[in-house]
């Protein structure tokens, strides 16, 4: 193997270790160091000298990660990735959430408003893309999307029949029905308003639930229920 190939291999090993693709403890540092030590640095051309420095830096990175791994092993924190996956697969959603509850120690702090926070908020507001382009700070009128009436009626009926068929009159999580689609949220809103669906909020969990009704129900004392639909996370 040529000198350049050895340097290239060391740099590649270091980047694979850094990316987590290779266990640092699998790298034989001493053998690689011996190969580098054989090089007569004073006679190296500048281009190869740069590769030599990069390779030594790579070896130092691997060594540091080996140290971390050994330290973690000694502290009993070494976990096998495959085993952890198996454990995760065996746990339900509630159990996983319970795991987080067991380890979460929220930081106590007193929130204050600072100029930095206000500047961040303003920058965020200005970066939000709205139907009329970037927010300018001036109030704008947003043109609502217009859907043909007959399409809405057809899609409402299709959604109502589909949900009744799948879930009967059972409660379903709002997010599962809407799936982040504003048009579906629009349909649900009409179905609830017209009495073809029932809706409730679980204030503790912060979840909304809906259920299709076989018979249309007359609404008494209707109340508005704002639900946020996030598109793309």
């Amino acid at each position: 193997m040529s000198r350049e190939e050895i340097y290239g291999r060391i740099v590649d090993l270091a980047s694979r270790v850094a990316r987590g693709e290779l266990d640092p403890l699998e790298v034989e540092i001493s053998t690689l160091l011996e190969r580098i030590e054989e090089v007569d640095i004073e006679r190296l051309p500048m281009e190869v000298f740069r590769q030599d420095v990069e390779a030594i830096h790579g070896l130092a990175l691997i060594l540091a990660m080996q140290k971390d791994r050994i330290k973690a092993s000694l502290e009993g924190l070494s976990l096998d990735a495959l085993l952890v996956k198996t454990i995760i697969l065996s746990l339900g959603v509630e159990e996983l959430a319970g795991l987080l509850r067991a380890i979460h120690r929220p930081v106590a702090d007193v929130s204050v408003m600072t100029e930095e926070y206000l500047a961040e908020a303003l920058a965020y507001f200005r970066s939000v893309v709205r139907p009329g382009g970037l927010a300018s700070g001036e109030p704008v009128e947003v043109e609502p999307e217009i859907f043909p009436e007959e399409d809405i009626r057809r899609d409402m009926e299709e959604m109502w029949r589909d949900l009744l068929e799948k879930y009967g009159e059972d409660w379903i999580a709002y997010g599962e029905v809407v799936r982040g689609d504003v048009y579906r949220a629009y349909l649900v809103s009409h179905l609830v308003t017209e009495g073809y669906m029932d809706m409730r909020m679980d204030r503790v969990a912060g979840e909304a639930y809906i259920r299709p009704l076989r018979r249309r129900r007359e609404l008494r004392n209707p109340a508005s229920l704002p639900v946020v639909v996030r598109r793309g996370g």
Binding site: L77, L99, L100
Partner: peptide, 25 residues
């Protein structure tokens, strides 16, 4: 001391943290 996340979100975070913790890098 209940985390301020929904059950589903908490489960995803626990899963992600566990996987990262068990990864070599």
């Amino acid at each position: 001391g209940v985390p301020p996340f929904r059950v589903n979100e908490a489960a995803v975070l626990a899963l992600a943290i566990s996987m990262i913790l068990a990864s070599s890098g």
